[in-house]
Deep mutational scan, measured.
Amino acid sequence: ETEYTFDDKREADRAAKEAQNNGLRVHVTKDGNRWKVRID
C-alpha cells in the first residue's frame, strides 16, 4: 500500500488513472485542501 499527496486534483486524478490502468486498486480522498491517492 502506497500513499501520495497532491495539491492539485488534476495531478491526483492522473496518478489514480495511471494506477488503475496498471490494474491496481486506487482510493482518492480529500484531506483539507490537498488530495491523497492510496494505492493497494
Rank of each mutant, 00 (worst) to 15 (best):
E1A: 12
E1M: 13
E1D: 13
E1P: 11
E1T: 14
T2R: 14
T2H: 13
E3Q: 06
Y4T: 08
Y4S: 06
Y4R: 09
T5F: 15
T5R: 04
T5E: 11
T5Y: 15
T5W: 15
F6T: 03
F6G: 01
F6R: 00
D7N: 10
D7R: 04
D7F: 07
D8Y: 06
D8F: 04
K9L: 08
R10E: 15
R10Q: 14
R10A: 15
E11Y: 05
E11H: 07
E11K: 07
A12Y: 01
A12W: 00
A12S: 02
A12K: 01
D13R: 08
R14M: 12
R14P: 03
R14E: 12
A15D: 01
A15W: 15
A15R: 09
A16F: 06
A16Y: 06
A16Q: 05
A16C: 11
K17C: 11
K17Y: 08
K17F: 09
K17S: 10
E18A: 11
E18Q: 11
E18V: 12
E18F: 05
E18N: 10
E18T: 09
A19S: 04
A19R: 03
A19M: 15
A19I: 08
Q20P: 01
Q20S: 11
N21M: 13
N21W: 05
N21F: 07
N22V: 09
N22A: 14
G23E: 02
L24A: 09
L24G: 05
L24C: 10
R25P: 06
V26N: 02
V26P: 04
H27R: 12
H27M: 12
H27S: 13
H27L: 11
V28A: 01
V28W: 00
V28Q: 02
V28Y: 00
V28K: 02
V28G: 00
V28L: 07
V28C: 09
T29Q: 09
T29S: 12
K30I: 06
D31R: 03
D31G: 02
D31Q: 07
R34K: 12
R34P: 00
R34M: 06
W35K: 04
W35L: 04
K36Q: 09
V37W: 00
R38E: 09
I39D: 02
I39Q: 02
I39F: 07
I39R: 00
D40G: 13
D40H: 13
